[in-house]
Nucleic acid binder design. Structure first.
Lengths: 300, 300
DNA sequence: ATGAAAGCGCTAACAT
DNA sequence: ATGTTAGCGCTTTCAT
């Protein structure tokens, strides 16, 4: 069997793609989100005989290591996740000159660079969630946000505001996508506005925490307070009591699409079509935003 | 900066190790288990400047692909997880001749090969769990097992039997480590033995499903039925109602240790010591079994 | 001590 | 169509 090192030496191709996950906190892995994306990515990569090199970064010092690795030309491209606003990674990556697709719309304001990303329609999905609540006759609708240094959280908040134009600011409380902090946020919301009749939580994990607090306070869901989440993580959304009405995003498909866009950009695209939200068939890959769907269960 | 391909061509080293996760079902990623192991592995590898190449196998056909990759000499070694009894992977790996450390005791009976693995003391932990229940005065103790084609599940069942020597066979029901099937198993247990007063579930996820069924049937935990889990996955065990008494295993440490053993076997061991359950300091790496601890919360 | 050269195993370009 | 050869960028050996 052929020796890969010799092969790469002459072809300058490695058939390997780096997946960079910035994991500043413990949170990332408490959450099936990354696992699902990874799975989508893995499927697409193996279908193209490319390997997945996983780069987990725990802190600032790791960033330089990742930058070095990417610049070292070990991989043909990179898939990068969960950038926060102040993240030095994009700069490093650009300097490394590696073809990259981002997971989620990057947050930096610099419009000069043309970046390719895959995201869900967070804003549209949030609007649909809140409109659903309003359609149920709810008027005092609270929102538990995600961490506002991530665009997904900001976009969902914007969607909330699109519908609740004059929302009482006390009805919005920032949280961090974890169940535990979802509990804290729900308590705060209830303390500020005991008369609220609905909550839109920025993800399912947060919603599950909120549900627990509601029950603990003796409030019935959905009769007293209706709850909508975001993500539709099956193991969470179907197991809550009551089962969660939520905005579904196809996370595995996002991963698959990221890999596909990257591979295509690397000229390995074989003209394959199909799949919802496909980017332009020929030419340079462009960002794609996938649609979301409201899944009605019992909580709203 | 140096070209890695050229470097590997002459040094025959890649500073990369493969992590192979056999993922026959969807389950693997619903479960934070692998994420935690991965994190431990990643930490140790990056500390030694080695890269992590992730190989996910979805089905039989993927096995040959993995075998080919491993035999292709792309990586210096492999870390292999979640083997089932009938798994063709070990054979392929051995044929590929790649240094390997297994996660969890491999199940095949062939004692001829000397394999290196890292595992928790599943049997001992299970014994401790059941003794705790017995110490609470419980007599009709049920056991919801994991999938019995995995050694971890078998070992925990053996631990259960060590204490409950003459256990009524109806008190044992096989499950698959998921919350949903945990519910099913708990119902079955209750239908068979309405008088049971305790349950040892083979993992926390299963226990959480059992807890839900118990509440749904109006049984109080721990007054009517005491429950002990296994794993101590914080996001699960602390969030259940009531919080779960469980057997803790240090999953991240297992991952770290696997990587350390492998690296040492590759002669990259720099004499580093420390860490519980460390294998022999010099010489070839040997398997290590990490201790478990009972964590008392409210459910038993 | 520093520098020149051979060769790792492959692919691509060239010659037959 | 098949066979031959240069050279990818590094490390290691050997000579200065």
């Amino acid at each position: 069997m052929p020796n890969q090192a010799a092969r790469s030496l002459v072809t300058k191709r490695h058939d390997a793609v780096a997946v960079v996950i910035a994991e500043p906190e413990t949170r990332v892995f408490a959450d099936p989100f990354f696992a699902l994306q990874l799975r989508g990515i893995s499927k697409e990569l193996t279908a193209h005989d490319a390997q997945l090199v996983l780069l987990l970064t725990e802190g600032r010092d790791d960033h330089t290591r990742v930058g070095r690795y990417l610049a070292g030309g070990h991989v043909d491209g990179a898939l990068v996740f969960s950038l926060h606003l102040d993240d030095p990674l994009p700069g490093l990556i650009q300097r490394a000159g590696v073809p990259t697709v981002f997971g989620g719309r990057p947050g930096w304001s610099d419009g000069s660079r043309r970046v390719v990303y895959v995201d869900s329609d967070n804003r549209g999905g949030a609007r649909e969630a809140v409109r659903h609540l309003a359609g149920l006759g709810r008027r005092r609708i609270g929102h538990i946000t995600g961490p506002l240094d991530q665009t997904s959280a900001v976009d969902r908040l914007d969607g909330f505001r699109d519908v609740m134009v004059d929302a009482d600011p006390r009805l919005i409380v920032e949280s961090d996508f974890t169940p535990a902090d979802g509990e804290r946020a729900m308590r705060e919301l209830l303390d500020r506005c005991p008369d609220l009749d609905a909550v839109f939580a920025a993800n399912d994990l947060t919603a599950s925490g909120a549900l627990r607090v509601l029950r603990e306070r003796g409030l019935r869901v959905p009769e007293d307070v209706a709850v909508v989440g975001f993500d539709d993580m099956l193991p969470v959304a179907e197991q809550t009591d009551p089962p969660l009405t939520t905005v579904r995003q196809d996370i595995e498909e996002m991963g698959r699409l990221m890999a596909r866009l990257l591979l295509r950009g690397l000229d390995r695209g074989d003209g394959e079509t199909g799949g919802a939200g496909e980017a332009a068939v020929g030419g340079a890959p462009r960002s794609v935003v996938l649609p979301t769907t409201l899944i009605r269960r019992a909580s709203a």
